[in-house]
Design a binder for these strands. Structure first.
Lengths: 252, 252
DNA sequence: AAGTGGTCTAGACCACTAC
DNA sequence: TAGTGGTCTAGACCACTTC
């Protein structure tokens, strides 16, 4: 049959569209309070439960933040800039403009919840590092905070036969970090590869990084190889997508 | 007061947790049907509306896909690999393993919905290209499909004074694409920079890329510069996050 | 026609926050 | 204490898909 009657837009969608427009136009600016469930219900002549759907819709789009007892507010965007740029091409892009939030300066996260242990690698980590059967790894897990809020969880894996006895197995690896220590050991990382994937967080990830609905995570698997091409570290990171701008540069 | 009674987990959260575990453990594999609203209601002794919240929760986490009249199914993950790798470091990573879906081969998207027009640039595009007041640009907009499903929208901007009269202003720029033509014009792009940001899609983006709930988008702003460091193209892309693995490599 | 997802009303109750 | 977000029941109705 042609000529189907087009589905009438849902009330909660229509109301959400009004608020959405106000948020995008900054008529409702970041941090500003959004109408409450009861206000929406009264203003638009719907029940509270329908009003809830409106707020749920906006929250799932990442436009608002809510918590029990507190008013729902428009979410802000103050990203951290993460640069992964080759030294050579850095010169070319020195004065590179950013389309997003050019006025926000780079911020350095602090480390939180650090654990350093020797353990048997998963099959995956073993194959990523090219390890033999039975070889162990040192894992350095840490969470990063900015302004007191968690923004990233990172797990770094290093072959035990390479780093055993070095400061890398200590909580504080010393000035320059683990890459400087790998250099001391004759395995300075010079080649890097990163694989990125984006999805919604698992409940555990959401808890760990305090993510509300509508906040995706970026998973980065980073491989670092020395001059001989040996992979000396793999690092899997989970970033709160709402907190980051990622930047890459390369030549061809 | 210390010793607050911990909030009892919501019924819909508890039920969702059961299904979530079955999805993660692949007991409910990708493509498999998930219990319907009525089944959940009957199985767990709740009302249909509560059962809906369970399915909404899973959908917002990107775990399931639903459509009117059809059963809700577990979402699959067959990503496209997008490589942005420097020629030199390509050798190092030739045999690089991937932690995600190693068995999925690279797939080449087809182009859809191409428009090529000369127009006045937005202030943003003008400043990104370093254009003078009044200068115009050629915009090449296109959508990419894989297996008939849209996966990316890309808008490429090129200075009109550079490309006027060249095949770049035609729908088909010829073999090698616009980068080869820029080379013909003496402005071969050799330096690249990409800025990435991730968020939930706007309703328009969701419509254009046919994104369900729980599907983030990746925004990529790509700058291409020639040997003199002049930015000869900027390209803003919007990718369906669920369809891509992004890969970068660089040396230091 | 049966089953599915989707919308909406009506009203009760709970927990947390700010005042 | 008042206002906020959050949970749940009860039941009606709609639109789309599959058979």
């Amino acid at each position: 049959m042609a000529g189907q009657a087009p589905r009438k837009p849902a009330k909660h969608d229509a109301i959400a569209e009004i608020l959405r427009a106000q948020i995008y136009s900054r008529e409702l600016p970041p941090g500003h309070r959004v109408p409450s469930e009861n206000e929406i219900a009264a203003d638009h002549g719907v029940l509270k439960d329908t009003a809830r759907k409106v707020l749920a819709e906006l929250a799932n789009e990442g436009l608002t933040e809510s918590a029990q007892g507190k008013a729902t507010v428009v979410r802000g965007f103050r990203p951290i800039r993460r640069r992964s740029i080759q030294r050579l091409s850095a010169e070319v892009w020195e004065h590179g403009k950013s389309i997003w939030d050019v006025d926000v300066p780079d911020r350095q996260p602090e480390v939180d919840d650090l654990t350093v242990v020797e353990e048997e690698p998963s099959d995956l980590v073993a194959s990523m590092l090219g390890l033999d059967e039975g070889a162990t790894v040192w894992r350095r897990s840490r969470r990063y905070l900015v302004d007191g809020a968690p923004v990233m969880r990172a797990n770094s894996y290093l072959p035990a036969d390479l780093v055993a006895g070095s400061p890398i197995t200590q909580p504080d690896p010393g000035s320059g970090g683990i890459y400087a220590r790998l250099g001391d050991l004759g395995h300075k990382p010079v080649h890097f590869r990163e694989e990125l994937r984006v999805r919604m967080p698992t409940p555990e990830e959401a808890r760990d990084l305090r993510l509300g609905p509508g906040t995706p995570v970026v998973l980065i698997a980073r491989y670092a190889a020395d001059d001989d091409g040996r992979v000396v570290e793999v690092n899997d990171m989970t970033l709160s997508a709402a907190k980051y701008i990622l930047e890459y540069a390369f030549d061809s």
